[in-house]
């Protein structure tokens, strides 16, 4: 079979590419979360190349040795039922491989879901990332500013993206910083990441959401804390506030360029309940009408009361529910009625 040669070459080519090829974005991480993923991917590729090698060597051997040729004409192949020993071998070895990969998977999944190692003690920078039609809104409650279609991050500080959508499901993805996660209309999902190298990184929506999907990109710019603070100050001084009317108009517009505002939309259009699928959810379309009712509960965030701004986004707690809903505790709602 002539094609195995090029295939193998491609695969070995791939392994060589892994060490230091910068065009493969996913394998060129600029933060600990993406690095964990990149290492996982490379580890799994190496393991799988091993599996492929075994199969290919056996395959070539069989085809070359046992092909019908003039010299073995009249040869009658034996009747073979199988071999328990061999069959157990090729059951047990894959099981071991799967076990190893399972351990790696569980550990790395845990690792990338949480704040990257070494950064646990820092206060994370919370950025709400919401999608509407074919654009991304990034709200910085701590700083009280908002951007559209670009996001600036300080390096060496944990960043917690909280995602939700004003429409179809989207997926926030900055491949060089972390893996992707969905943004949906009825709950808030989280990505924890840290950028440890300053630079401009491609960010995009990875989940198809209609006509303008292909254009739904943004730039993630990682910069030092000082530059970041300077930028925040700059936005606060030079940009206008985001009014509700303006925001509603923005939601309607399919595509816009970059925008910056000196306030966030969170005050008049707060995110859906955090946690997940709360009972009796009453979200209205685009979350607008209902969110207005909650306005009082949401003090305008300002840089002075950081803590409040961070922990108060739990709008849909039932009035008769004494404690805020712990998302992990959802099962009680199923049995309690």
């Amino acid at each position: 079979m002539k094609k195995r040669g090029p295939l193998l070459a491609l695969f070995f080519g791939l392994t060589m590419l892994l060490s230091g090829c910068s065009s493969l974005t996913v394998l060129d991480p600029k933060g600990p979360a993406a690095r964990t993923l990149s290492d996982t991917i490379i580890f799994s590729i190496l393991m799988m190349v091993g599996v492929l090698a075994v199969v290919y060597i056996l395959y070539v051997y069989m085809l070359v040795k046992y092909r019908a040729k003039k010299s073995n004409e009249g040869y009658v192949p034996p009747h073979e039922e199988g071999s328990t020993k061999l069959e157990i071998t090729w059951t047990v070895i894959p099981i071991i491989i799967v076990l190893i990969l399972s351990v790696v998977t569980v550990r790395t999944t845990m690792a990338v879901e949480n704040v990257p190692e070494g950064y646990e003690n820092q206060e994370p920078l919370v950025i709400y990332a919401s999608s509407s039609n074919w654009k991304w809104h990034f709200s910085y409650p701590e700083q009280g500013i908002e951007t559209v279609n670009y996001v600036n991050l300080p390096t060496h500080r944990p960043v917690e993206f909280r995602m939700y959508s004003f429409g179809p499901i989207t997926s926030l993805w900055i491949p060089q910083l972390a893996g992707q996660k969905y943004a949906m209309s009825d709950m808030v999902t989280k990505i924890n990441l840290v950028a440890d190298v300053p630079g401009s990184y491609m960010g995009k929506n990875a989940n198809f959401n209609g006509e303008g999907f292909a254009h739904m990109n943004f730039e993630a710019l990682a910069m030092s804390q000082a530059e970041f603070d300077e930028w925040v100050q700059d936005v606060k001084n030079n940009e206008g506030e985001l009014t509700e009317a303006e925001f509603d108009k923005l939601l309607e517009t399919p595509h816009v360029g970059r925008m910056s505002f000196a306030s966030t939309h969170l005050s008049f259009s707060p995110p859906p309940e955090e946690g997940h699928h709360h009972s009796g959810s009453t979200e209205k379309e685009n979350g607008n009408q209902e969110h207005q009712d909650n306005k009082e509960k949401f003090p305008e965030p300002s840089s002075t009361d950081e803590d409040e701004a961070e922990f108060d986004f739990d709008p849909n707690v039932h009035p008769d529910d004494p404690t805020p809903v712990d998302p992990g505790d959802e099962s009680t709602h199923h049995e309690g009625h």
């Binding site: 996913v26 996982t40 799994s44 590729i45 799988m48 997926s171 893996g179 990875a206």
Partner: peptide, 18 residues
């Protein structure tokens, strides 16, 4: 084998929808 790679949840965060 790429299926096995995709099956790893963490790595899938980078492969999903690509």
């Amino acid at each position: 084998v790429t299926g096995v790679m995709l099956a790893m949840a963490s790595a899938d965060y980078q492969y999903h929808n690509t």
